[in-house]
C-alpha cells in the first residue's frame, strides 16, 4: 500500500499554529531586545542568528558539538540500560527492591549540582558529562518503568498463567508490550534531562572542547550572542535527538 504524501488539513493547521507561535515569540524577542537596547543583556535574533551561522562555519564548532553529543548519548544509553535493568530487578525480586529502591530514590532526589561537585572528585573531567547524564536518566526510567510494570493488566497475566506461559513468554508477550509506551515516554523525557544535566556539568567543570565549556567562556568573556548561539545549538540537537528516538521507538513497536 502506498503512503499518502499529501498534507492533511489537521497537519496544515498544526504547521500554521507552530509558525504563528514562533513568529509571536520572535516578535516578543525583537521587541524586548529593541527596548533593552543592549546586546550584552539581550541580543537581537539577528545578531544571534549571525553568530550561530558563523559558528556553524567553524570546524571546531562541529567537533565540540560531536564531543558533547557523544558523551550525552553515551550517558543517556547507560542511564536507560541501568534504569531498565533496575526496574525489572526491583519489580520482581523483593530483596533487590529492598536494597536498590531507596538508593535510586536518593539519587533521584539529590540536587544535580551536589553530584557534579562530588563526581568531579572521583572521575576525570572528560567522564563527567556521561556520568551525570546517566545519573539523571537512571531514576527517571526506573520510576516510570517500575510503575508501568506494577500496572500491567492482571487479567492478562492470569490468562498467561492459565495457558502455561513461561517467564520468557510472559515477558515477551505481556510485560514488554504493556510497558513499552511508558518506557518510551520516560526515555524521551529523560533525554531532555540528560542534555540539561550534562551541559550543566560541563559548565561547572569545563572539560576540554565541550558545549558547556563554550557556554562558560561566552559568559566570562561577556559574549552574550555567542551564549545564545550555543544554547540554540543545544536546543536544536536535543529536539532532533528526541524526535529520532521517538521515531525509532515507533518503528520498533510497529514491528
Amino acid at each position: 500500500m502506498k503512503r499518502s504524501t499529501t498534507t492533511t488539513p489537521d497537519k496544515k493547521t498544526k504547521i500554521i499554529k507552530a509558525v504563528l507561535a514562533a513568529a509571536f515569540w520572535a516578535a516578543v524577542w525583537v521587541l524586548l531586545s529593541w527596548k533593552t537596547g543592549q546586546e550584552l543583556l539581550l541580543p537581537s535574533p539577528v545578531s544571534v542568528g549571525r553568530e550561530f551561522l558563523s559558528l556553524c562555519a567553524r570546524g571546531d564548532f562541529w567537533l565540540t558539538i560531536l564531543t558533547t553529543l557523544g558523551r550525552i548519548v553515551a550517558g543517556f544509553a547507560a542511564g536507560v540500560a541501568a534504569g531498565t535493568l533496575l526496574a525489572w530487578l526491583t519489580s520482581f525480586f523483593g530483596a533487590a527492591d529492598a536494597i536498590l529502591s531507596p538508593a535510586v530514590r536518593i539519587v533521584g532526589s539529590t540536587p544535580i549540582a551536589s553530584f557534579i561537585i562530588l563526581v568531579l572528585l572521583w572521575v576525570d573531567k572528560s567522564w563527567i558529562t556521561s556520568f551525570i547524564s546517566a545519573l539523571t536518566v537512571t531514576p527517571i526510567v526506573w520510576g516510570a518503568l517500575s510503575t508501568a510494570i506494577g500496572q500491567t493488566d492482571a487479567s492478562l497475566l492470569e490468562m498467561g498463567r492459565a495457558y502455561g506461559f513461561d517467564a520468557v513468554k510472559r515477558l515477551r508477550l505481556i510485560y514488554v508490550p504493556s510497558v513499552l509506551p511508558s518506557w518510551a515516554g520516560a526515555c524521551a523525557t529523560a533525554m531532555g534531562m540528560a542534555w540539561k544535566s550534562g551541559i550543566a556539568a560541563e559548565v561547572l567543570c569545563q572539560p576540554k572542547r565541550t558545549v558547556g565549556a563554550q557556554l562558560y567562556y561566552s559568559k566570562i568573556y561577556l559574549e552574550t550572542p555567542s551564549l545564545f548561539a550555543w544554547t540554540a545549538a543545544v536546543i536544536i540537537l536535543s529536539m532532533v535527538l528526541e524526535r529520532v528516538f521517538r521515531l525509532a521507538i515507533r518503528r520498533a513497536s510497529e514491528k
Binding site: S155, L156, E158, M159, A162, L173, I174, P177
Partner: peptide, 12 residues
C-alpha cells in the same frame, strides 16, 4: 484449556 468470561486477548 480455560476460556475466560472476558476475551483477555493481547491487543498488540
Amino acid at each position: 484449556a480455560f476460556m475466560f468470561q472476558e476475551d483477555r486477548l493481547l491487543p498488540w
